[in-house]
Simulated assay, not measured.
Amino acid sequence: MLIPTLEQLTAEHEAFAYRQRFAVYARLYGPAAIAFLAVSLLPLYEDGEHIHTVALSLHVPNIALMLTFTTMIVVLLIGTFRPFASFVGGAIAVAALVLMLVLPMQLGDLESLADTGVIAQAIALVILVTGVIHQIHRLVDRPEAAEDSSSPGARPNSSSS
């Protein structure tokens, strides 16, 4: 049938509205991924070395930092293009938390971070908070709950009778 029914149009509209509610996170994750990419190319520590050249020394904290930056950028890009996926907010929050823990690990203190390292910590904190809020929003605003209450044969809750 070429002409969609009212139910089909309503279902499509609800699915579109559901995706749009999570688009606000994608508008933050994309620029954050670019910011992390830019910060990862600059020296993060006072000694002026870049993480990609330091990682060649095969020192475990340096390799962990490089992998953490790469993971953070990849997860932020996934969050940019699929913000309504069920795992994205939690994965971004975990990656930001790991980045905040791994970044000062190389030299043991936060005083050894250069300005770009402090900027990376600040961006990671904002992304951590946003990822937690995104995951809570995703858990509270599930499409299954909306479908159950709006189905045509659903009865009101009669437990108070």
Rank of each mutant, 00 (worst) to 15 (best):
V129N: 03
V132P: 03
F36L: 13
L44M: 05
T116M: 14
Q20H: 07
T116D: 13
Q106G: 01
T130Y: 05
G89Y: 03
Q135E: 11
S86L: 08
M72A: 13
I78S: 10
T130F: 08
E144F: 09
L107K: 11
V129F: 08
Q106T: 12
S86F: 11
F87K: 02
Q20C: 12
G30R: 13
L110W: 05
V140P: 03
A85S: 13
V60F: 05
P4Y: 00
N62W: 09
E49F: 08
Y18G: 02
L56Y: 02
T10P: 00
L56W: 00
V75H: 10
V129H: 01
P104Y: 02
F16V: 09
L65N: 00
F81Y: 09
R21Y: 02
D141Q: 08
Q106M: 07
A120E: 03
L101T: 04
D141L: 10
I133Y: 06
R27C: 09
S150K: 07
A85Q: 07
L6W: 00
H59M: 05
L65C: 02
A145Y: 09
A17F: 07
L42N: 10
F84S: 15
L77A: 07
S159F: 11
A93V: 04
P83F: 03
P156W: 07
N62L: 02
S40L: 02
A96M: 08
R82T: 08
A120P: 05
V60T: 07
T70Y: 09
A146H: 10
H134C: 05
E144K: 07
T71C: 10
M105A: 13
I119A: 15
G79W: 06
R21W: 01
F16S: 12
L77R: 09
G153W: 13
T5H: 03
E7M: 06
L76S: 05
L6R: 07
F84Y: 12
S158Q: 12
S86K: 07
L113F: 02
I133T: 11
Q8S: 11
F36W: 04
V74T: 11
L56D: 04
E46N: 10
M1N: 10
I123S: 01
S158K: 15
Y45F: 08
V74P: 00
G79A: 09
S86V: 06
E7F: 01
R142V: 06
L128V: 01
R138E: 06
A122S: 12
R21P: 01
I123L: 15
D109I: 01
